[in-house]
């Protein structure tokens, strides 16, 4: 298909066929991961720079594996702090990377808009957003779609219950948009203080009662609860959170019997998720990690593999 997006910044302007195309590409990549020798020469001679301003293990490693399996040359650019702090600005870093001939830059940054900003400054390189502040994490959303799609097939008409801190979650924003575009309905639950003001505009609904939110759900997606939100007074205590919204076997009973349990990781056992369901048969948490590599290989291939004009 003709691929019209120049970068992967967020999924706001993507359409269902775009998402579907990446899912299908990911399936081919997934097959590669089962081979004894995983490396293919698809991106030989391409330079990919991983530019991580924020601590990240799984996203960075996942991208790096994907790049290496496709035989790209990989550079991990060490960067720390904000671009306004000591050292060079993001603008100068961008120009430096382009001067070095980067074909793609993967950026993780604490500031909303950092990936968009980088894309505006780079004339040639493709930008992959590895997470910008609480705004967007498109590759996570794609890997979540892929995980669910691979397991249960078409996502049209499926119900996704998402529980937790939606307000501060880039994963939630991207996943709500992605699942909605695939035709799923998304119901959010959690304390009202952790919800954005206009959830309907994102394509979701809000139900403060987690039991009714989870009722007949095909997918339960749990979001990480950070202790610092308690310190900020967003909710009274982690213990109360777990009692009211923590996901456990009792809550899982309200969902469809074969419902998938997902979480972007790292998980807080005993807070947003109880160990019985995190380690249970319906948990997809490790499957998501594997999907992450496949989906990032698919994206790198579509953007850098010569398929694109």
């Amino acid at each position: 298909m003709e691929w019209k997006h120049r970068h992967v910044l967020d999924l706001d302007t993507w359409e269902r066929p775009d998402l579907q195309h990446i899912l299908e590409q990911a399936r081919s990549m997934d097959e590669l991961l089962d081979r004894p020798i995983k490396k293919v020469p698809a991106l030989r001679g391409k330079l990919v720079v991983n530019l991580f301003f924020e601590a990240s293990t799984r996203t960075r490693v996942s991208f790096e594996l994907a790049e290496k399996f496709l035989s790209a040359d990989v550079v991990n650019w060490s960067a720390s702090g904000s671009s306004t702090g000591k050292g060079e600005t993001l603008r100068d870093t961008a120009w430096t990377l382009e001067a070095m001939g980067a074909d793609a830059v993967v950026i993780r940054h604490g500031a909303v808009g950092a990936a968009d900003y980088l894309a505006r400054k780079l004339k040639k390189s493709v930008v992959f957003n590895g997470g910008d502040g609480a705004h967007s994490h498109p590759t996570q959303a794609l890997l979540d779609l892929y995980t669910a799609w691979k397991k249960i097939g078409p996502l049209e008409g499926k119900k996704v219950a998402m529980i937790g801190d939606v307000l501060h979650s880039r994963v939630a924003r991207s996943d709500i948009i992605a699942f909605s575009k695939m035709g799923s309905s998304v119901v959010l639950s959690g304390p009202a203080t952790l919800m954005p003001r206009s959830v309907e505009a994102l394509g979701a609904t809000y139900d403060e009662n987690p039991r009714s939110a989870v009722r007949d759900a095909d997918i339960i997606y749990l979001l990480r609860i950070q202790k610092e939100r308690q310190d900020e007074g967003m909710f009274p205590s982690l213990d109360e959170y777990h009692q009211l919204f923590g996901f456990d076997a009792a809550l899982l009973k309200h969902a469809r019997p074969d419902a998938l349990v997902m979480h972007p990781g790292p998980i807080n056992r005993g807070v947003e998720i109880a160990s019985d369901v995190a380690d249970g048969s319906q948990s997809m948490i490790l499957g998501q990690v594997r999907s992450g590599v496949a989906i990032r290989m698919a994206l790198l291939f579509v953007y850098l593999g010569g398929v694109r004009q």
Binding site: A134, H135, S198
Partner: peptide, 16 residues
Amino acid sequence: AQVNDGICSTFSGLKG
């Protein structure tokens, strides 16, 4: 806070 508490904070994740 960084942007209007409404559509913009909802989509951007910036504090409203």
